[in-house]
Lab assay of single mutants.
Amino acid sequence: IEKFKLLAEKVEEIVAKNARAEIDYSDAPDEFRDPLMDTLMTDPVRLPSGTVMDRSIILRHLLNSPTDPFNRQMLTESMLEPVPELKEQIQAWMREKQSSDH
Rank of each mutant, 00 (worst) to 15 (best):
P44L: 00
L47P: 01
T42K: 05
I14V: 10
N18A: 08
K17E: 14
I90V: 13
S65C: 02
M79V: 04
T39D: 15
K17T: 13
F70I: 02
D24T: 03
Q73N: 07
S78E: 12
T67I: 03
Y25I: 03
K3L: 02
H102Y: 12
D54Y: 00
E31Q: 11
H102R: 11
T42N: 15
K10V: 14
R95S: 12
G50D: 03
D30Y: 07
T67R: 02
P35A: 02
S100T: 07
V11E: 12
I1L: 07
L80R: 00
Q98K: 14
I14S: 10
N71Q: 00
T42S: 11
S56A: 09
D38Q: 01
L40H: 13
T39R: 01
E85V: 13
T39S: 06
I23N: 10
R55P: 00
E13K: 08
P29E: 02
D38R: 01
D101K: 04
I1S: 15
E2L: 00
L40I: 10
S65V: 02
E31K: 08
V83R: 04
T67Y: 05
E13L: 06
P29L: 06
D24E: 15
T42F: 09
S26V: 15
F70R: 02
E2M: 11
A92N: 07
E2N: 11
R20S: 14
P82Q: 07
T76S: 09
K3Y: 05
D43T: 02
L62R: 02
H61Y: 01
V52D: 02
V11K: 07
A8E: 13
F4Y: 09
M74K: 12
I14P: 07
I23A: 14
S99H: 05
K97Q: 14
H61Q: 02
L7S: 10
N18H: 09
S65Y: 06
Y25S: 14
H61N: 01
E13H: 10
L36W: 01
R20A: 13
A92S: 15
I57F: 14
H102L: 10
S100H: 05
E85G: 13
E31V: 10
D38A: 06
N64T: 04
K5R: 09
T51I: 15
S78H: 03
A16G: 11
E31G: 10
E13V: 06
R72H: 02
R20G: 11
K10S: 15
V45A: 03
L6H: 08
P35R: 01
K97Y: 13
M94G: 11
I23V: 10
L63P: 04
D68N: 15
E2K: 10
R72L: 02
R72Q: 03
K3V: 04
A16S: 11
V11L: 08
Q73H: 03
E12Y: 13
L36R: 01
R72G: 01
E81Y: 12
L36M: 02
V83G: 01
N71D: 02
E22N: 10
A28D: 09
K3T: 09
H102A: 06
M94S: 04
N18I: 08
K5E: 09
S100L: 05
S78V: 03
Y25D: 15
W93L: 04
P48T: 03
D30H: 06
I23L: 13
K10R: 12
R33C: 03
S65F: 05
S56F: 03
L6S: 14
D54G: 03
E96R: 04
K87N: 10
P82E: 09
D43I: 01
A92G: 12
D43E: 13
I57T: 15
L80F: 10
N18D: 14
R72D: 01
P82K: 02
D38Y: 15
D27V: 05
V83K: 05
A21S: 10
A16E: 12
R60C: 03
R55C: 02
H61E: 04
E9Q: 08
V11W: 05
M53I: 15
F4L: 13
A92C: 03
E2V: 08
S56C: 08
K5N: 09
P69S: 00
D101G: 13
P66F: 04
L63V: 12
A92D: 14
E96Q: 09
H102C: 12
L86V: 05
M41L: 05
M94I: 14
I90N: 01
I58L: 04
N71H: 01
N18R: 15
S99Y: 01
L86P: 00
M79T: 04
M37V: 07
S49T: 10
D43S: 03
Q91T: 14
N64Y: 15
P69C: 00
E81L: 04
N64L: 04
E2H: 03
S26T: 13
E85Q: 10
K10N: 12
I23F: 14
L47H: 03
N64H: 06
K5Q: 11
I1V: 06
L63F: 00
V15Q: 15
P69R: 00
D34E: 02
L6I: 10
L75V: 03
V15G: 09
K3M: 06
R46I: 07
E12D: 13
A21G: 07
H102D: 14
Y25C: 12
T42I: 11
L36P: 01
I90T: 04
F70S: 00
Q91E: 14
I1R: 09
L6R: 15
E81V: 13
E9A: 15
I14M: 13
V15E: 13
D27A: 06
D38I: 12
R20Q: 14
L80M: 04
S78N: 10
A16T: 10
L7P: 08
V83L: 14
D24Q: 11
D27G: 13
R20H: 13
V15D: 09
H102S: 06
L86I: 08
A8G: 13
R55L: 03
E22Q: 08
M37F: 01
E9W: 05
K5V: 14
A92P: 02
D68Q: 00
I1K: 10
L80Q: 01
P35T: 02
Q89L: 08
R46S: 10
V11I: 06
T42A: 12
S65N: 03
Q98H: 12
P35V: 06
S49P: 02
S26I: 15
L47Q: 00
P66Q: 08
K87M: 14
K17A: 15
V11M: 11
K97I: 13
A19E: 13
I58N: 02
S26G: 13
E9D: 12
P84S: 13
F70Y: 15
P66T: 05
R95Q: 10
T39N: 07
E12G: 08
L36Q: 01
D101C: 06
D38S: 02
M41V: 03
R33E: 02
Q73D: 05
D101Q: 12
I90M: 00
K10H: 07
L40P: 04
M94F: 15
E22V: 09
E88Q: 09
G50S: 06
D68E: 01
T76N: 08
K17V: 15
M94N: 08
F32L: 06
W93Q: 04
Q89H: 07
A19G: 11
A92E: 05
V15M: 10
E12A: 08
Y25A: 11
M41I: 08
W93G: 02
T39P: 01
